[in-house]
């Protein structure tokens, strides 16, 4: 099939703009990124700098790929990262607009590549259970109810791609942060640091990102379909963290 791409090009330190490229001879079995590979290969042959975009695992788990395709983070297919989007979703003659994700804390590096390391700042603030190597007791000493373990896994499935931020009209990182917070808060192992963690991660998040106004766009964009419920649970835990008498947090 033959496609027409409108791609955002931006050099470091300069303003960007859209450029139009033709993409002839695209097979429907290609992934979206392979389609861009083919375009790049031709650009190189023509002596034009290839389009910079990020990707790594190309199987939807590393969270590196990040494109805004026709106004949707990760493109039109639900629960699918850009790298897993396949060209069979498109028809011959389609026009596709591709631009980088935008948020004040996702500065554009070049073309379609943005810097998402602000997400790491949130993780660093408390996204862990302090269990230095060697200090762990036998794993089966702490039973975890299956429902809780499954729910924690639902949250932990987050791949940290930042689509939630890109899709949010407020550039809020609530879905990412709540997934990271609740993964640990839902488990018995995470209880000791629960209030401290929630407080630190939420407040760090707010140093970089906007506030949640419950649009729900994040969930729609999320390649792992992380539930909005985690946002509600995090909000509750955050307010509790302010009220809780932590001296009693060893008691039920």
């Amino acid at each position: 099939m033959h496609l027409t791409l409108k791609v955002w090009r931006q050099e470091p330190g300069q303003n960007g703009m859209f450029q139009t490229y033709e993409a002839p001879g695209i097979s429907e079995d290609m992934s979206f990124l392979e389609m861009l590979d083919v375009v790049n290969e031709r650009l190189i042959e023509e002596g034009t700098a290839p389009i910079v975009f990020e990707s790594d695992c190309r199987e939807g788990i590393c969270g590196t790929c990040d494109l805004m395709i026709d106004g949707q983070a990760h493109g039109p297919e639900k629960a699918t990262a850009t790298c897993q989007l396949h060209m069979r979703k498109y028809n011959d003659g389609d026009h596709i607009t591709i631009e980088p994700w935008r948020a004040a804390s996702f500065p554009v590096i070049r073309d379609l590549a943005v810097d998402r390391s602000a997400l790491d700042a949130i993780q660093e603030a408390g996204g862990y259970i302090s269990a230095p190597t060697g200090s762990a007791s036998d794993a089966n000493l702490t039973p975890v109810p299956k429902d809780a373990a499954d729910s924690a896994m639902d949250a932990a499935a987050c791949i940290g791609c930042g689509a939630c931020v890109a899709a949010c009209p407020n550039s809020a990182a609530q879905l990412f942060t709540s997934a990271k917070v609740m993964h640990l808060n839902l488990l018995p192992q995470g209880q000791a640091e629960r209030w401290k963690r929630t407080e630190a991660m939420v407040e760090t998040m707010e140093e970089y990102f906007g506030s949640c106004t419950n649009h729900g766009e994040c969930h729609e964009a999320c390649p792992k379909e992380i539930s909005l419920d985690f946002i509600a649970l995090m909000n509750k835990d955050y307010v509790k963290s302010k009220i809780k008498n932590r001296k009693l947090s060893g008691q039920k």
């Binding site: 862990y128 259970i129 269990a131 190597t133 060697g134 200090s135 762990a136 007791s137 036998d138 794993a139 702490t142 039973p143 975890v144 109810p145 299956k146 373990a149 499954d150 924690a152 896994m153 932990a156 993964h183 640990l184 488990l187 192992q189 995470g190």
Partner: peptide
């Protein structure tokens, strides 16, 4: 043991 203590949500 280490991974479970870190909160790795192993199947249960």
């Amino acid at each position: 043991d280490q991974a479970a203590a870190q909160g790795v949500p192993f199947a249960r």
